[in-house]
Nucleic acid binder design. Structure first.
Lengths: 233, 233
DNA sequence: CGCTCGGTTGATGCACATCAAAGGCTGTGG
DNA sequence: CCACAGCCTTTGATGTGCATCAACCGAGCG
């Protein structure tokens, strides 16, 4: 738990706080703490009562939920600038619907629930931005649901596209967060082996390339093409 | 499009407006129209610009989205009291992310977008209720995602439980909306035939019973048991 | 050096989708 | 009033995408 000031630059860069000045942000985040997590550290547990919400500062967190079969399913990947658990603060006695686990070293600004109910509530524009975040996350979930009957390779393609950083330069792009095949599988509801079979095929074809947990997409158009193609492979 | 007054009783009964009086509700809904839909009427189309949001008054609507394979996937079933498209009103130029189609005769209160941005926005409690609706819908989507690897029969069981009306009397309950097996399949990302095979088995065992599109669950505990059971069937 | 973790590959089987065919039911138009 | 077209349900036969099981390898690490 370090000083809030130190991360002010990051905070001011996030769309969530666009147009707010330093003082306003300090007020909104007062009493907040900066949590630094190592790889696989757990930020909060699914099912526990939620006293805080917060914002991802750096790195990434995966949001997981235990399946009836014991293994954890990854519901969402959260990247810097995203708000976590803000959506449930409006409930009388909120409970985390998922667990949050760090993927590599990450940092998180943890803010007390009271702030949301007191100061955030009186900023309708802020609440609207939260609402937009939430609705865009729901959209992603719906899009995934729509692909339920598509072949696994298309689901993988979709996931890659969604996670791509937009610094595309001539059809070349990469995914910032360190992601294992298992995590991809856990997100898609598939088995590791199946994901590997698909992705190593793409590696051979030079469409993607993995180095040190970082996935680079060399031929974005090929992936998109695959996404739209009716014929599988 | 009938007078708003006529449906005031319904509106006042919804949790969304709990604690609000007639005048306040009239103000919030001013300029609204009551749409009456017949079976399979389309309320709005996925992809069209959204000038209105609204509230389901009676009957039910299914929210669908076209899949890459052409067929429509059902993303959600909306029942009376639920708000539709309210979540996206905060966007500068909102577009319906799904289509809404009536299941049997239904009624819908259609409210202009401006109301949300003007009058609704200044009622933080109202916005919080909307946010809670949205987050509970997202929870359902997440729960479904978690069951991705479970056998189909458990997914069907889960769906039935979620749709059950809570007027349970000695393990007997029923689902209000008229639902075909195809709609269940379209919601679960399965084929009609598979759903039928599962449900007719349950019918034979006297666990459920269908009459005139209404599904009655005679032995709720059996369904719940099936949901938790590790062994499939 | 044993350990865990991530990736990879092959063999086998099963839960579903798919295809096909048929009967009941409702509404619609000639 | 009958014919016809849709829609919903059902049942059986056949095929397949992917899970599962079982190994094995290389790399980082205490």
């Amino acid at each position: 738990m370090k000083a809030l000031e130190a991360s002010m630059n990051e905070l001011m860069g996030f769309p969530l706080f666009a147009g707010y000045n330093k003082l306003q942000i300090l007020d909104l985040c007062q009493g907040g703490q900066i949590m630094t997590s190592s790889h696989r550290d757990i930020l909060f547990h699914c099912g526990k009562e939620a006293h805080c919400f917060g914002i991802v500062l750096s790195g990434a967190y995966k949001l997981t939920k235990p399946s009836p079969l014991g293994e954890d399913v990854i519901v969402h990947f959260s990247t810097p600038g995203e708000a976590l658990a803000a959506f449930i603060m409006a409930q009388p006695r909120p409970v985390y619907p998922v667990s949050a686990i760090a993927m590599g070293p990450s940092r998180f600004l943890k803010i007390p629930k009271e702030n949301y109910i007191n100061s955030w509530k009186s900023h309708p524009d802020l609440i609207f931005r939260i609402q937009n975040m939430l609705s865009s996350r729901m959209n992603m979930l719906q899009d995934q649901k729509v692909m339920a009957k598509s072949p696994l390779s298309q689901k993988v393609a979709m996931l890659l596209i969604n996670l791509l950083d937009k610094d595309t330069e001539q059809g070349n792009a990469s995914i910032k967060l360190p992601m294992t095949r298992k995590e991809i599988a856990d997100n898609l509801g598939a088995s590791v082996e199946s994901v590997i079979r698909i992705m190593s095929e793409w590696s051979k074809q030079g469409i993607i390339q993995t180095a040190d947990q970082q996935i680079h997409v060399l031929k974005v158009d090929k992936i998109i093409e695959h996404l739209n193609d009716a014929n599988l492979k």
